[in-house]
Amino acid sequence: MPAGDLSFLGFESAPSDTTVFPWREESGASTVDEPIPTTTVVAVRPWAAEVGLLVARLVLGGTALLGGARTLFDLPRGHGDGTVATQTLLSGLGFRPVAELTAALGWVQLVAGLLVMVGVFASFAASALLAIHLVAVVTSVGAAWSAGAVGPVEAPLFGLALAAVVVLAGPGRISGDADRPWYRAQTPVGLTCLLVGVATGLTVLIAMRA
């Protein structure tokens, strides 16, 4: 077809197809699209949130640490015989064997509380405290229902919530766990620890309570 017949399409003055198809301006150029550079965005919690996690850890771990010291060694003094009081409480709630459970409770509170406070294996340690507080919440529901008040279940529920926060959110950057492999995989670690804590608490309630 004569070139004049194509003038209305704009081809007449084009020396080659590079004018109409500018991506072919070099005969040796590759037609493969160039890779688009990407930027990795890393979400970082603000420092106010890190301080909040530190406060949650100190309250949760410090309370557990004092509870374990009182159960095992009657420390601080002035609260009576912690071991006998704990054994009486567990026996009244129907738990067996009382002596072994009292010793286990005291040592778990002591060790897990210390680990949570310093932020070392914090999610794992907090899962043990979550199990303890879950048992306390379940065993307190009956008394709260009978009294028509939240008093009996208030403290265990508060501890359960704090433990869940540390388990799921992790210890934060102000901790001994910062930049550890498990710290960088907090979501799977937190969910696993949550399941372990709940399963442990339910096992104690089902298998060790008459």
Rank of each mutant, 00 (worst) to 15 (best):
A125H: 06
L58C: 11
V111N: 06
W47K: 08
L75Q: 10
A178M: 02
A163C: 01
L202K: 05
V44G: 04
L58N: 08
F11L: 15
R70V: 07
G201N: 00
F121A: 06
G142K: 09
A163H: 02
W107R: 07
G94F: 14
T88H: 12
D5W: 15
G68F: 05
W145F: 11
G106V: 08
G106K: 02
L89W: 13
D74R: 04
S123H: 01
V166S: 05
V138Y: 06
A49K: 02
L58K: 11
A112G: 06
G170H: 13
G119E: 03
G28Y: 12
V138I: 09
T83N: 14
L105K: 00
P156G: 02
S7L: 08
P15D: 14
R96Q: 15
E50G: 04
V150H: 01
R209G: 00
F158R: 02
T139D: 00
V167P: 02
A169W: 03
S140A: 15
A85S: 15
R57P: 06
V42K: 11
T71L: 12
L65E: 01
Q87G: 10
V198M: 05
R209T: 06
P188C: 08
R180E: 04
G159I: 00
T203A: 15
G82Q: 10
L162V: 04
I132W: 08
V153N: 14
L162T: 01
L101W: 10
L65Y: 07
A3Y: 01
L9I: 01
L115Y: 05
G94R: 12
M208Y: 15
L115D: 05
F158T: 01
A144T: 05
A122L: 04
A161H: 02
L160E: 07
L93N: 06
T38R: 12
P15G: 12
H133C: 05
A199E: 10
Y183E: 06
A163V: 02
V41W: 12
E34Q: 10
V196S: 10
I36N: 08
L168F: 02
V137F: 09
V55H: 11
Q109R: 04
F95H: 02
V138G: 03
G28V: 05
T40W: 03
L157P: 08
V196I: 15
D33I: 13
V32N: 10
A48M: 09
M208A: 15
T83I: 03
F124T: 14
L205I: 01
A143G: 02
V141F: 11
G142Q: 03
R70L: 14
L114M: 12
L9E: 09
L72M: 02
V108E: 09
V32M: 12
A136D: 04
T83E: 13
V111E: 08
P156N: 00
A64K: 04
S27W: 08
D17T: 10
Q87A: 13
T86P: 00
G4W: 13
G92A: 09
D81C: 07
G113Y: 01
A155F: 13
V51D: 07
